[in-house]
């Protein structure tokens, strides 16, 4: 199959993820959006790796997955802690760190 199909899927996934992050207020949903964006990037990387017949892209994808996993762990821990003190997952409520 042609390259462009995969790239279009990747772009669409990325935009959906971006929209999710920008438009939703629930912290967990924003997180899901971020994961979507990461996976969209992964898809693009693997596509190009396949297109150039090199492994660099797949290696980068593995890197990304590792980073994503780490980030999820830390991020979820933070969200849970905030939830415990505020009893709300609304991101707009966590505004203490301001000028």
């Amino acid at each position: 199959m042609s390259l462009s199909a995969y790239l279009i899927v990747s772009a669409v996934l990325f935009c959906i993820g971006l929209a999710g992050v920008l438009l939703r207020r629930n912290a967990l949903v924003m997180f899901m959006g971020i994961e979507l964006m990461l996976n969209a990037a992964n898809l693009a990387l693997v596509t190009f790796s396949e297109a150039h017949a090199e492994l660099d892209g797949q290696v980068a994808a593995v890197f990304t997955m590792v980073v994503a996993a780490t980030e999820v762990v830390v991020g979820l821990a933070i969200i849970i802690t905030i939830f415990r003190s505020k009893a709300s997952l609304n991101v707009d409520d966590a505004r203490r760190l301001r000028h």
Partner: peptide, 17 residues
């Protein structure tokens, strides 16, 4: 310039994007 630090996560995200 300090006003940029609104504490609102979604503003920050918008700025990133």
């Amino acid at each position: 310039m300090r006003r940029l630090q609104s504490g609102n996560v979604r503003t920050y995200v918008l700025l990133f994007v």
